[in-house]
Nucleic acid binder design. Structure first.
Lengths: 259, 259
DNA sequence: TACATATATTCTATAACATGAAAGCGTGTC
DNA sequence: GACACGCTTTCATGTTATAGAATATATGTA
């Protein structure tokens, strides 16, 4: 079906009401009927009735001393509902499942706390060889894919502040040079996903991609981890890497991110 | 005039739209047209058109994979606007009072709008020599302490975009060189408070400190202003500056800021 | 494959109601 | 007191929101 544009179905009176509501976004937090009427080219009686309707639901309230109108508490509640419903873990759940299935590895959602990655949730792989779950663990930023994805888009100043000396080693693959990690992060920024090839734990590889929200900032990392023998460079670059990136972008959109 | 109850002026179609919007408050974050139609006893076509209208303004968005609808980013923005317009002033009130008392000068809370500082509220000094209140006034960012505090933490790119040519002069002390203002802002970032020494108005000095909220961004400036003869450099650096900073930090915490 | 079901979307005509015009009321200023 | 201004109230009509039905698509089942 070729869908008609939804603008064909707009209800004019509702749109006018939204016009009124949106006038309160400006620098003036209190507005009068006449002022709104002039700004919106609506008759005063119309503005009054729209305000009365919005006021009846507490989206708008009236300052009794000067008769001006301002936003009401319902606006705050609506915003809080948005935040609640669009919460990270809730929105991540279906995407973690999808990623675990499509990659056949364990998927994770993690955040940054100081210099550590915190794994918040996971969906296990169905493969026969499993790795130990990381949920609840704190891990070093520089030696994990999730950590790299979480910080890759920080400012250069912030990154230099974070990496100014030799980094702790965990395996023979761990990157311990600040200079080298900064280079790797440049690659992460280009590819939009990060890799950990047995840098934190022998035999374990991870791929992670940044997740953003309505603030447009990286707020989490979506990642997949599995044994090195299953996660070859080929498989990472041809299949799992782009899949993690795709899922991370999907999650970002669900969290209100707009490119 | 005995005012009639405003329920006499409610616009039914707008009320229906608000009914639809409010159905998204529950645990179900995604809802379909038919479900909403049944819950609200509105015809499906009506619900569809209301959703289309709300969607055109981003109060509602549609999940493309399952055709369900959910709250859109505008709800968050509306909530944020409410917080901005109502939360700040309410939380600032007691701190303005405290600061006016401890500094024995007039305290202000102000925000930035474009290239101007807007003074939202003030608590007067109890000193015998008073200055004219600035509440409601718009003033140039570069020539006021509040303006400097509001922009000091913008990115260098943003600051260079803002200050790229000669700045307007108000007094013999006004900083008119873009290069110099950028240097001064560096000092503001170090001290976490800004000074205006008769730069906008002869005989008037101000000290301002940035106020942040849960977004971790600078959203307002807390300031003190008084006559130059009372606000010596010594007094500013030894007493009033740190006091303004302390109060600004207190207000930041009240607004949800966490270091 | 055919059929049933469910849902979002599309179309249309009419009567309901949103709009526009004007009047009323309260407050402030000269 | 006269006038200006802004919010609120009243009323009639014509615009448009509503109600009813149809359409298109996807999914599930036999």
């Amino acid at each position: 079906m070729v869908r008609r544009d939804k603008s064909n179905y707009i209800i004019q009176s509702v749109a006018h009401a939204l016009d009124v509501l949106e006038e309160f976004r400006g620098e003036m937090d209190e507005l009068g009927v006449t002022e709104l009427s002039k700004k919106l080219k609506l008759h005063k009686n119309n503005v009054f009735r729209i305000l009365a309707t919005l006021q009846s639901r507490n989206y708008i309230e009236q300052n009794r001393t000067n008769d001006n109108y301002r936003l009401g508490i319902k606006c705050l509640e609506l915003g809080q509902t948005f935040i609640h419903q669009r919460g990270l873990l809730k929105q991540a759940q279906p995407i973690l499942s999808e990623l675990a299935e499509s990659s056949a590895e364990t998927s994770y959602i993690s955040i940054i706390r100081g210099n550590e990655v915190v794994y918040l949730d996971a969906v296990e792989t169905t493969s026969t060889v499993r790795v130990v779950s990381r949920v609840g663990l704190h891990m070093p930023v520089h030696a994990t894919a999730a950590g790299k994805a979480l910080i890759a888009f920080d400012s250069e100043e912030e990154l230099r502040r974070r990496f100014h000396s030799e980094l702790p080693r965990f395996t023979k693959n761990t990157i311990t040079s600040s200079e080298e990690i900064l280079n790797v992060l440049g690659v992460v920024r280009e590819k939009e996903y990060a890799i950990d090839q047995e840098e934190f734990e022998d035999g374990l590889c991870c791929i992670a991609s940044p997740v953003r929200d309505y603030t447009r900032k990286v707020i989490a990392a979506l990642s997949v981890s599995g044994p090195a023998h299953r996660l070859s460079i080929d498989r990472i670059e041809q299949s799992v890497g782009p899949e993690v990136l795709r899922c991370a972008k999907m999650l970002s959109i669900r969290l209100g991110y707009r490119e």
